[in-house]
């Protein structure tokens, strides 16, 4: 799986903590281990909290990309 092609995408701009994380978590639950989810987040609190919570759940942020009004983070789902 290339780092640049995500299997799924979710745009969470405008979605507040901790709902943004909950949505990320639910999305990841529907995916297979090793698949990559692209999550679009606002800068600020979401960028502080969501990647950290993803790590706590055992998944891995493999790449971070800055975009005009926020960030895309690429999350690789953990082996279950």
């Amino acid at each position: 799986m290339s780092e640049n092609t995500a299997d799924e995408k979710i745009d969470l701009r405008g979605v507040l903590c901790p709902i943004n994380f909950v949505k990320t978590k639910l999305k990841l639950e529907m995916m297979e281990s090793g698949q990559v989810l692209e999550v679009t987040l606002d800068d600020g609190e979401p960028m502080r909290s969501v990647p950290r919570s993803i790590k706590e759940e055992g998944h891995k942020v493999i790449k971070v990309e800055q975009i005009d009004d926020g960030y895309k983070i690429f999350v690789k789902k953990a082996d279950s």
């Binding site: 800068d43 960028m47 502080r48 990647p51 950290r52 942020v61 493999i62 790449k63 971070v64």
Partner: peptide, 12 residues
Amino acid sequence: CTGCTLCEKACL
């Protein structure tokens, strides 16, 4: 380190 900058974001 991959240079992802998340630690910069994390540090208040």
